[in-house]
Amino acid sequence: MRRLVLRGNVDVYSGLLLLAISTLALWLASSLSLGDATEMGPGYFPTVISVVLGMISVAIIVRGLITPGQEVAPIEIRPLAAVIFSFVVFALLLPRAGLVIAIGAQVAVAHFGSPETKVQESVLFAIGLAIFSAVLFIYVLGIPLSLFP
């Protein structure tokens, strides 16, 4: 099974991830008015939080670089990719091809996420889930969706 192995410890990677997110947030907040403590603008709270988050992420990165820390568990590509694509396929097909085909396609893609799935079982589950979702979401909850294209 194909795996993505990240060298180095969890602190470095989690710190980098958080630093990226806080930088993005700071950039988004920078266009908002800050105001002052008496009359805070929309940007005040997000700016303060992203700055503090940025500082903490740097601290986490530094800790990761100077202490041995825990290794990152390998990331297996297959289940991750299958789940991602199954959602994308579902979201793309749902408005265009209707609920039944969208669910069928989602199950078909997800089927490859585990080496233990069996074709017959997955087909049965796709049919069962399509019926269940049609009844619950379209007839009971009244979601405006078509069943077929």
Partner: peptide, 29 residues
């Protein structure tokens, strides 16, 4: 292998149903 199929289908259609929006499906992802 059976349980996970149920979970992903129910979560995809479920989150869609809240606002009838595929945007929320991508957001869940």
């Amino acid at each position: 292998r059976m349980l996970f199929l149920i979970i992903i289908v129910v979560s995809a259609i479920g989150v869609y149903s809240v606002n009838n929006s595929t945007f929320d499906v991508y957001l869940t992802l």
